[in-house]
Each structure stands twice: as C-alpha cells, then as structure tokens.
Amino acid sequence: MSDPSIKTAHQDLHSGQGALRGEHPGRARNPVIKVADLAWLEFEKPDLHRAEVFARDFGFFIAGRTPDALYLRGTFPGSPCAIIRRGRASRFIGPAFRATSRSDLNRLARATGADVKELGEAGGGRVVDLLDPSSFPVRVVHGTEELPALPEQQPLTHNFGSHRPRINSMQRPAREPTRIQRLGHLVISTRVFARALDWYLDNLGLIVSDFLFLDGQRDRGPAMAFMRCDQGSLAVDHHTLAMHLGPSTGYVHSAFQVTDLDAIAAGGEYLAERGYKRSWGIGRHVQGSQIFDYWRDPDRLMVEHFADGDLFSCDVETGWAPMRASGQAQWGPPVTREWLGTNPSPALLREVMQCLREDNELDPARLLGLMKAMNS
C-alpha cells in the first residue's frame, strides 16, 4: 500500500501527470507580449437577419448593427464578443485578442513587422493585424470602447444538505434564452500544430494548461493544447484558445459563459423548441471542468454554452494526458461523432487526401493516431 503522506509532483494539480524531461515546456521564456484576453471573434454570413434571430435565441444581446455588420455582446462590460459581417458564405474569419497597453501594441508591431492602425469602426481603438502559421487572421487590439454592464440572469438559490436557504418557494427557471455573459474561448484545428503553438506562445504570451498526446506517440509531442492568458497571479480561464492537430485547418467551436447549470438547461430547452440542433451535451468536461452544451447555428457553425470553468493563475504547471474521445467528459451523454467531426463524408476524405500531399505535420502514423483517439 502506498504511503498517503508521499505526494507526486502532480497529485494535487489538475492533471495526473506533468511533462517529462525534454518535453515542450508549455510557455515561452520571453514572449513578445502577454495578451490579457480574447476581445471578440469575427465571422461572415450571407444573411444577417437569420444570424440575428439565432443570436438572440442563443442569448446574445445586440450591441449595434449596420447594413453590413452585426455586433453581439454579453451582459458583462467590455467590447462586443462577436462581430458578424455580411459575406458570400458562412465562415469564421479570425479572433481578436486584447493587449494590456498601447506600448504592447507597439512592441508587437515592431517584433512582427506589422503596423499599428486605427481600428476604424464602432468602438474605435487601435489594432495590429497578423497572420498565424495556419493562415488565420489574428487581430490584437487596445483602446476599444467599453460597453456598460447589462442586467444579469441571477443564479437560482439551492438547498444543499443541511444548508437550506430556500424555504416556502419553488424552483421555476424561466423557459427563455440564457443570457450570454462573455466570450470564453475559441477552438481551432490545424495541420501545422507545432508551428502554430509556438507562434501563440512566443508572440502573444499564452501558456499551456493541458497538452493531449496521441496513444503511443508521446515522443512525437502533443497533438492538442489548451492555452490560457498569462495575467500573473490573477486567475483566468483554463483555456482561452484550444488548438488540435487535424486534417483540416479551421474553426471548431467557440464558447460563451452563462450563469449556471439551470441557465444552460432551460436555455437549451428554449433552443430545442425552436428547432435548433444540439451537437452534444449537457455534461462536464475534463480539461477545464466546464459544464457544457453544444449547439449548431442555422449555418452549422458550432457554439457552446458553458458555466463553472476552472480558473488558473500563471504558476499552475502544464498537464499531460492521452487524447481520447471518451476522455472529453467526466459525466454526460456519450460524445457524438457529429461533435467530433468524424462522420464519414466526401469532404472529410478529400481533406485527408489533400493533407497527405502537402508539407505539414500530418503523416499516416499521425492520422492513424488521430483516428484511434476519436474512437477510443
């Protein structure tokens, strides 16, 4: 029997194991800047009216609209958390991160050879426009207008064991859209995972909360990273950007914080009654611990309601775990193939064949490892 007084390096942390000698440290030694948070995400859609109807049903508030753009916000103060521009097709454009200071914008511009420009739209401020190794446009902004807070969706009062504050009153959560509070995180897929990972760590100062590796291929490095912002001793979301190696390069999903489990469940009932399709949920994740619920918008882009996520300061070490479909949740319904993106299709087959012909980080062994992970 093991001695309970003896603790391993990671026994009291979020992950069962940490890095082995010589593995990726999960952070840059001297990043150019350290961004404070995600500011917003940008999309294009051909039908802004349909986009607005779903946005309201999902729980966004409208911060502004023009003939060619829709600005969505949550209840927390700050900038809009999503901008939808009129375009020919429904697609994700890229993220915008918030710099801590104007001097950080200048430093980033000098280091990357970019320019600091006026943002030139509602909210003002300045921006540095970059392109990451996956060819995603990445904006870093500062000095944008801060919108005031909106009324919150109040959490329900719960009776727990002998602590029973709710007396002579019933629980009746309203069947209405859950109110989005803020943008939480973005997940993307890329064929150049290692290069993109180092780019975000080196230039934006993100640090890795958790790495996932493919079974039998840990020696080849991680295949997924959950990255958070580095705000020192201030605890922040377990991940602001998550990225995984895959045969396609593109948007996977984005996540928006809501009040609590009841808000997620009642808001989900509201969405289902209006004919929207749940992708997966309700459950609780492993990496990040969030209670989650995933939905598809009318153009099949995936968005997530979440609540009760982990918060880490800068001194929490990077965890390492095997990538497995069954390891995505602590509890909840079985993960769906639709959510995993592994439903067989001609488009998926074309992506696999194309990536094998290109110069990237995927080879037959990595692809087989990914397929095994998604079926384990």
Results as ranks from 00 to 15, higher is better:
residue 2 S to T: 14
residue 12 D to W: 14
residue 12 D to G: 11
residue 16 G to F: 07
residue 21 R to M: 11
residue 21 R to G: 09
residue 26 G to F: 05
residue 28 A to P: 06
residue 34 K to N: 10
residue 37 D to L: 00
residue 49 H to T: 15
residue 53 V to A: 10
residue 54 F to R: 04
residue 65 R to T: 11
residue 77 P to H: 04
residue 90 S to D: 13
residue 91 R to P: 06
residue 99 A to L: 04
residue 100 T to A: 14
residue 118 E to F: 10
residue 119 L to P: 00
residue 129 D to W: 04
residue 130 L to N: 01
residue 131 L to Q: 13
residue 133 P to M: 01
residue 151 P to M: 11
residue 154 Q to K: 15
residue 156 L to W: 11
residue 156 L to S: 12
residue 163 H to K: 11
residue 169 S to F: 05
residue 170 M to D: 13
residue 173 P to I: 01
residue 175 R to A: 11
residue 180 I to R: 05
residue 188 I to A: 01
residue 192 V to C: 04
residue 215 D to C: 07
residue 215 D to I: 05
residue 216 G to V: 12
residue 220 R to I: 01
residue 228 R to G: 13
residue 236 V to H: 01
residue 240 T to I: 09
residue 243 M to F: 03
residue 245 L to W: 03
residue 246 G to M: 00
residue 247 P to A: 12
residue 248 S to L: 07
residue 250 G to N: 03
residue 261 L to P: 02
residue 262 D to V: 00
residue 267 G to M: 05
residue 271 L to T: 10
residue 274 R to M: 06
residue 276 Y to E: 07
residue 280 W to G: 01
residue 285 H to R: 06
residue 289 S to F: 10
residue 289 S to N: 15
residue 291 I to K: 01
residue 297 D to G: 08
residue 306 F to Y: 15
residue 306 F to E: 08
residue 320 W to L: 07
residue 325 A to N: 04
residue 330 Q to M: 14
residue 337 R to L: 08
residue 338 E to P: 03
residue 342 T to D: 10
residue 344 P to R: 12
residue 347 A to E: 15
residue 348 L to E: 06
residue 348 L to Q: 09
residue 359 D to H: 07
residue 360 N to E: 00
residue 363 D to T: 05
residue 372 K to N: 05
